[in-house]
Design a protein around this nucleic acid. Sequence first.
DNA 1: CGAGGGTTTGAAGTGCATCAAATAGTGTGG
DNA 2: CCACACTATTTGATGCACTTCAAACCCTCG
Lengths: 248, 248
Amino acid sequence: MIKTNTKSDIFQTIKDLDLFKGCEDSFFQNLTNQSQFLPLKKNQILFLHEESATRFFIIKRGWIKLFRETFDGTQAVIDILTTGHIFGETAIFDKDIYPYSAEAAEPAEVISLPLSVLKSELETNSKLALKMLSEMAQHRKIQDKELEHRTIQNASQRIGCFLLRLTNQEASGNVTIHLPYDKTLVASRLGMQPETFSRALKKLKAETGIEIKGATIFLESLSQLSNYSCAACSSEFPCRDLKSGTAG
Amino acid sequence: MIKTNTKSDIFQTIKDLDLFKGCEDSFFQNLTNQSQFLPLKKNQILFLHEESATRFFIIKRGWIKLFRETFDGTQAVIDILTTGHIFGETAIFDKDIYPYSAEAAEPAEVISLPLSVLKSELETNSKLALKMLSEMAQHRKIQDKELEHRTIQNASQRIGCFLLRLTNQEASGNVTIHLPYDKTLVASRLGMQPETFSRALKKLKAETGIEIKGATIFLESLSQLSNYSCAACSSEFPCRDLKSGTAG
DNA sequence: CGAGGGTTTGAAGTGCATCAAATAGTGTGG
DNA sequence: CCACACTATTTGATGCACTTCAAACCCTCG
């Protein structure tokens, strides 16, 4: 068993990406040649909003927080991504400027790739362009729903909805959910304060009867949550499209 | 002077769209052949969320509200579009199902066009695909900011920001802004109640010294508003990319 | 075992929503 | 041109959800 972070490893990783399905090996080779493997410490900043961009990234391991912040330091979390997700690539369409900042929320590993290679591939490979277009449209719908949730759902419902989206949404009996990262971070991801998160989770427990032990949550069934959370949503429960995908 | 809503009129309208720049006349002809000109009364519904989609639309005149609603009737406004904007086209990427409902917010005129023609054109015309991809990425950034605003700005700041985006953001002296549609609708567009809008506008006046007369607002300068509103935003003032574009 | 970050709790304040009602504005038919 | 009906907007009173600030608690890890 070879187990290194070599170029061949990177080659394979990008080749396995859904977005790049059907691309030629020469494309993967070009990307790989100019690739870098980057281990990131917790809270390490990868790039900043409005910085000039030459590279995009693929997450190999860990969680990456995308965010923007105001002059006084208040920040808005845009998305939190993990293994297999791509980010920073939309700079191509915005004068090569990153539209957000990126930071490791946990120790993480990412692969850094040249935007230029992706850009030229897009211009000649229409299948890739279509695939990317499709993913982008998908993501747009997700964002619409995100905004809807902020408008319609209260804090507890948003947490319930978040938990449901961590599951495969098809289990019929007991389900155990483990929060993927710090509660504080989940809170910011859902647009609320840590204190609010703590209290709202408690309220969710009171309303639905779920069990909470630290970062682990036990459900008797998914409907226990969906009855409560999905009442304030335009979609019916199994809403599988809401998985946060590539966030660009 | 010919002044009819004939097919040749439609042909010219779609030919002038930025999105379709560089497309062949045969494409425009195909679209036009299967086009329909639709006058809409106020509050007339064009299509509903999750309905099966065969057509997309271009606004000729008036305002169209895109929204989603929950079972109990609460609705979340996604966007409000006007002349030149395209909507409903993203159904292509989502199993031919509309991702939102559309309704005329004012008396309006739209052109209805077949999705099938657009779909097949996309598959062969990579320039169009790239252009669409680029617009989609742009829109994504706009949505990110929208969410940021909901998170960081208070009601008054959101109104100020909205007003600024109605201007060309470059005027140096006095500016007169006219609200494009009902205050109630602006309120829902900004995710607040009509009562809150009314009070928040008053507060905005108190904070910035703007003048308000019905649906018309007078500024001495843009900075009068931007100093107040843009303080709670990650972008510096002239933020021209924030014009709501095609909302898909 | 002690330091430090993450999490919870408490108390108090703020902003927005809600409900109810008054007022302004618009278009209609007489 | 006016009176009426209807809708949009404003205002008032009150309640609730979330935030803020402060402090305690807990957990993990050196």
